[in-house]
């Protein structure tokens, strides 16, 4: 029996879809059978972030309405055999599915996959309610901004009201340089305010923009700091203990060399 994890945030644009694509791909790299599910009906995007937009025939509404079989709705990833995408419908709206149907769908998927990673839409309306319906665990994505942290707090409350206790936090787009000069809330500040457990911190990284442009989740690469951060989250999900990344690596070798010279 697999585990279903919903990636949610309340606020839009904080990186839910990117996080879903990278965690899903990262877990597949570790050898798991994974399906990423896009529940953002009407505004689907997980397909383009995964680079699978040209392969879509059926979607989640077709599967739920039994227009096609579950297997027909799943799109196999182009790089990893154990990785599949269940795309959202683009021409329908959030009310085309209800939470009961979602629960049934996720349970069917849990019988076949090790991990089901569910990409939630922004907001707290029916699309959100659908996305959390079958989830065993919830990960909240936030950025170090007031608006995102506030919405994260609200979503944590809503999740707990639905029995999804102890959601875990992913802090996205941390900028070490700004944190250092006191112009951005740091990890401790945010944890302190939200009072939830942390599962990972993702640095603000150009590599993510570049990889999204190409339709390849950054986690498939070795070098970028954000790729390492996503790999670490995946290792934590499968039960490994991994320390938080030292984001100072961001500084680059040159400035480190200078520091070394002057520290003598």
């Amino acid at each position: 029996m697999g585990k279903a994890i919903v990636i949610t945030s309340g606020k839009g644009g904080v990186g839910k879809t990117t996080t879903t694509a990278n965690i899903g791909t990262g877990l597949a790299i570790l050898g798991n059978k994974v399906v990423v599910v896009d529940t953002d009906i009407g505004l689907r995007n997980l397909d383009v972030v995964m680079g699978l937009e040209n392969r879509i025939v059926y979607d989640i509404v077709d599967v739920v309405e039994k227009t096609c079989r579950l297997r027909q709705g799943l799109i196999r990833d182009k790089r990893y055999d154990g990785l599949f995408l269940l795309p959202a419908a683009q021409t329908k709206d959030k009310t085309s599915i209800n939470p009961e149907q979602m629960l049934e769908l996720i349970n069917d998927l849990k019988a076949e996959f090790d991990y089901i990673i569910i990409d939630s839409p922004a907001g707290i309306e029916q699309g959100f309610q659908n996305s959390i319906a079958g989830a065993d665990e919830a990960y909240i994505v936030t950025t170090p901004e007031i608006s995102a942290v506030r919405d994260a707090d609200r979503v944590i409350g809503l999740l707990e009201a639905k029995g999804l206790n102890n959601p875990k936090l992913i802090i996205n787009r941390i900028r070490h340089d700004m944190v250092k000069r006191g112009d951005m809330m740091n990890v401790e500040d945010i944890i302190d305010i939200l009072a939830v457990d942390l599962i990972g911190v993702i640095p603000d990284d150009e590599a993510i923009v570049i990889s999204t442009n190409k339709g390849e989740p950054v986690v498939v690469e070795d070098e970028p700091l954000s790729a390492k951060a996503f790999k670490n989250i995946c290792k934590r999900i499968v039960g490994e203990e991994v320390e938080l990344l030292n984001l100072e690596d961001n500084e680059g070798k040159f400035s480190k060399l200078i520091k070394l010279l002057f520290s003598k």
Partner: peptide, 15 residues
């Protein structure tokens, strides 16, 4: 009063 502390304080109030 770094801008981060301003943010934290405002956030705490609103929460």
């Amino acid at each position: 009063k770094s801008s981060k502390n301003v943010a934290k304080e405002r956030l705490k109030l609103v929460l």
